[in-house]
């Protein structure tokens, strides 16, 4: 099963903010159980999407030298449930970044209306200890995450002139 809970990047401003999109599709398995006949996107997966958006933002700010992991979510609130067919936009701003980790604030928007907010705290794994446990490679930013990173870079690149 994939564990990427964002479909792609729409905007990316290095070290500052990012906007991603998540389309809620009935093709996703979890709606069969959550809930039968009443498909609602689990709030935990929305938070995961916000954290992935913010995690990439925090990782890119240090050129992916750090292993960025979700530390804790201090606050999260949603004004309603989100169901199949809706498109969620995740807007995440980096509030604070330092050698040990980062904090970010995230919003969930539907049709431009803010329907949810969360405060996310990321930790950077201790370099020496994680090298012992996981080796030299950065296991956080691999595989499908790498594809998203490329997309983030494209989203952050200057747009071609419309004229």
């Amino acid at each position: 099963m994939r564990w990427i809970w964002i479909d792609g990047f729409l905007e990316f401003e290095s070290g500052k903010r990012a906007r991603t999109v998540k389309n809620l599709s009935s093709a996703e398995d979890h709606y069969a159980q959550h809930f039968p006949g009443y498909p609602v996107m689990p709030a935990a997966l929305i938070l995961e999407g916000l954290a992935q958006t913010g995690g990439i933002l925090a990782g890119e700010a240090n050129q992916f030298r750090e292993k960025v992991v979700l530390g804790k979510i201090n606050k999260a609130s949603f004004s309603r449930e989100f169901t199949v067919g809706e498109t969620l936009h995740y807007e995440v701003e980096l509030v604070h970044i330092r050698p040990e980790g980062a904090t970010a604030s995230g919003k969930v928007l539907v049709n431009g209306i803010c329907e949810g907010e969360a405060e996310i705290f990321f930790a950077h794994l201790d370099q020496a200890r994680s090298r012992q446990a996981f080796g030299e490679g950065n296991f956080v930013f691999t595989g499908e995450m790498r594809h998203l990173l490329d997309q983030a870079k494209r989203a952050g690149a200057p747009k071609p002139s419309q004229s």
Partner: peptide, 13 residues
């Protein structure tokens, strides 16, 4: 333990 880091960040701000 993770809260200590969060507390430090908040105190700095």
């Amino acid at each position: 333990s993770i809260d200590f880091l969060d507390i430090v960040f908040r105190l700095e701000r």
